[in-house]
Amino acid sequence: MSRRLLVNVFQSDQDILNATKAARENGYTIVDAYTPYAVHGLDKAMGIRPTRIGWICLGLGLLGAAAKLWFQIWTSAFDWPVNVGGKPLTSLPAFVPVTFEVTVLFAGVGTVVAFFLVSRLLPGKRPKVVYEGVTNDKFVLVLAEEDASFDVEKVEKLFAPFHMVKMEERVEED
């Protein structure tokens, strides 16, 4: 399946922010926005819902804690019991530092890996730059041309106050 895209290039963060707001208010489908740096408020303007990666982080952290705690209890109290200073074999305070470290390790590394998987940034991935200036000083908003009623001229009029530099129709092949 292919879809038709409309690539709009702007000159400043404020312009793309306002254009994005206007596009959403007028019911256009926003595919993505590309900026040289993080533009505050753009995620809200695009209507992206809050990320759920925090839940992955929490789950992985709990998994790390449980796994490491179990491992320590198993090694020091069951598989090879060692008496340390007359303390009980299962002494939780002694297990806390390592459990803490592994919780952080699982949660931290796991979240990064999860982020790469979710955004499909796998090794060998070739960069697809939507517009050359986007790595320097240009801001790009991509809209989807959903159906025949999509009118490029209407969009051009809508974006007129936002100093658009360029507008380009493209067909994306999957």
Binding site: G85, K87, P93, A94, V96, P97
Partner: peptide, 12 residues
């Protein structure tokens, strides 16, 4: 808090 606790607890 825990850093203070564990050293004292361990050394006993």
């Amino acid at each position: 808090w825990f850093s203070q606790y564990i050293l004292i607890w361990y050394a006993n």
